[in-house]
């Protein structure tokens, strides 16, 4: 199947990408405002930005540590 056929589906991915961005930004804001995390902060920043989609979720579930 030619690539052009796939192209018509790209608009369908836009909402998915938007949700992904919202998650990423929320996670980064949370990380910046937090004093303590489980493990180094820079590592979490990398995970959030680079690990597509589940990075922010892993951070929300496992990375936060409340004093």
């Amino acid at each position: 199947m030619p690539f052009a056929d796939f192209q018509q589906y790209i608009p369908f991915l836009i909402p998915v990408v938007i949700i992904q961005l919202i998650l990423m930004i929320a996670a980064l804001v949370d990380l910046l405002r937090r004093e303590k995390t489980r493990g180094p902060k820079w590592l979490w920043a990398l995970i959030i930005v680079l690990v597509n989609y589940i990075g922010p979720i892993i951070y929300f579930v496992a990375g936060r540590q409340d004093a």
Partner: peptide
């Protein structure tokens, strides 16, 4: 942000 995580995961799979 628990609400956000659940909402986002489910919405993405819905899409």
């Amino acid at each position: 942000k628990r609400l956000l995580v659940i909402l986002a995961v489910m919405a993405i799979f819905g899409l």
